[in-house]
Design a protein around this nucleic acid. Structure first.
Lengths: 224, 224
DNA sequence: ACTTTATTTTAGTTATGCCTAAAAATAAGA
DNA sequence: TCTTATTTTTAGGCATAACTAAAATAAAGT
């Protein structure tokens, strides 16, 4: 009779898996990147990576970086699903604003069961994307494909149908909202300044200016 | 400059405070009672009680039992408020049944912020009691007074307006529900068997029999 | 190639919060 | 009261997951 001990997944492990996914999707992440992302010291990360490998959540050779195994990615996406459904609930039904949502979801995602998650999914009407426009992984761990062209890459005169805003910073999000820049809106590139990369844009008939950095965060689909 | 270290309240501490409150409200609880309630060994409880005393959550002299301080009770009631609001949400909006609710709420109550709790309270319409009929502590830590006479103590012919069912056991709750015994219903004591304490009751015009133990769990107000 | 710098790992601590086994205090029964 | 039984505490461990300091490895610069 083999041991076959399936250890429970701690919230620490969940956070590591999510961090690896965020930092390196399917590529490979460095110890330092993870330490930064998790706000934890590099030695702590290093030692945890050993444990994650032992439990087959990651491929990891010392000094050579980490990447998620299939098992690890499954868990990361399961957590991401919980996170984004919870965010959707907080924003749409409890009156949270951008600034408050993240921290709360970060705690709750570790506490809810699969049952809760699926009931919440039903309650919310099975959304495919959260209010940021980020895709919500399905129960089977598939990510709905999402138009992802950065606004910054358009040519003069082109228009982007906004799908998502790739930031979780409160100030960024509320600033964009104050300009009416939100998922499903259409944004046209009017002019690009020759130095500094500022872009002039038109939305809802009004014109404003965006920095290059901001323009990189706005993603969506180029339309005719 | 004094240290003045206000340590964060761990989920373990929250569970102990809740357990002490449940076991001994304002009276004093024994180490063993708590070990039973928390499903933790007595030595573990003993050592934790020392820590709780150091942080002024409890009054505790070795061998002489524990009771909550004002500070401890405030925390216990804050947790209880979260618990009961969460249960209400799960039962009324996510389609949970009696059996599933407890476990989920037990985890979530440690994860939600005060902000979440108050937004949820608003979402739910500021309920004073949860669907069990248990009173929900207010933000200020007051417990709404609740009619609390056990059905078992009525005299023949008297009727109880049910306010709460003092059990968190799935089977008990669903059994009572199958007999239409729920908060706000009226239950009349028809007859008491001379041996064994079985009671014959009438509810919604139908008659059934309840054990003495069950009759103790049904609480409410005697009406004319 | 070699030296400096940066990254990563090892070694050794710490704090929580649980456990079992054994000792001490209290409570109960003859 | 004195002995037995129960309850509670002390003693000593273990697992998780963080930390700092120092050593090892890898990367970059000249």
């Amino acid at each position: 009779m083999p041991k076959n001990k399936t250890k429970p997944i701690s919230t620490a492990i969940e956070d590591y898996l999510k961090a690896i996914w965020l930092v390196a999707q399917d590529a490979s992440a460095s110890t330092n990147d993870l330490a930064l992302q998790l706000k934890i010291s590099a030695p702590s990360v290093s030692s945890m990576l050993g444990k994650l490998r032992e439990q087959n959540f990651v491929h990891y050779e010392p000094y050579r970086g980490v990447r998620l195994t299939e098992k690890g990615e499954r868990e990361a996406l399961r957590l991401l699903r919980r996170h984004r459904l919870i965010e959707t609930f907080l924003l749409e039904h409890l009156g949270y604003d951008w600034g408050e949502v993240h921290e709360e979801a970060e705690k709750l995602e570790h506490a809810v069961s699969d049952t809760f998650t699926e009931r919440l999914d039903t309650f919310l009407g099975h959304p495919s994307h959260d209010p940021h426009g980020d895709p919500i992984p399905t129960l089977k761990g598939k990510l709905p494909v999402t138009p992802n062209t950065p606004f910054a890459e358009l040519s003069i005169g082109e228009t982007l149908k906004i799908a998502r805003l790739m930031s979780q910073d409160k100030d960024v999000l509320t600033y964009l909202k104050s300009l009416a820049i939100e998922p499903s809106k259409e944004l046209q590139l009017v002019k690009r300044e020759p130095v500094g990369g500022l872009v002039h844009v038109e939305i809802d008939g009004a014109e404003t200016v965006l920095s290059k950095e901001l323009a990189m965060l706005i993603r969506g689909e180029v339309i005719v």
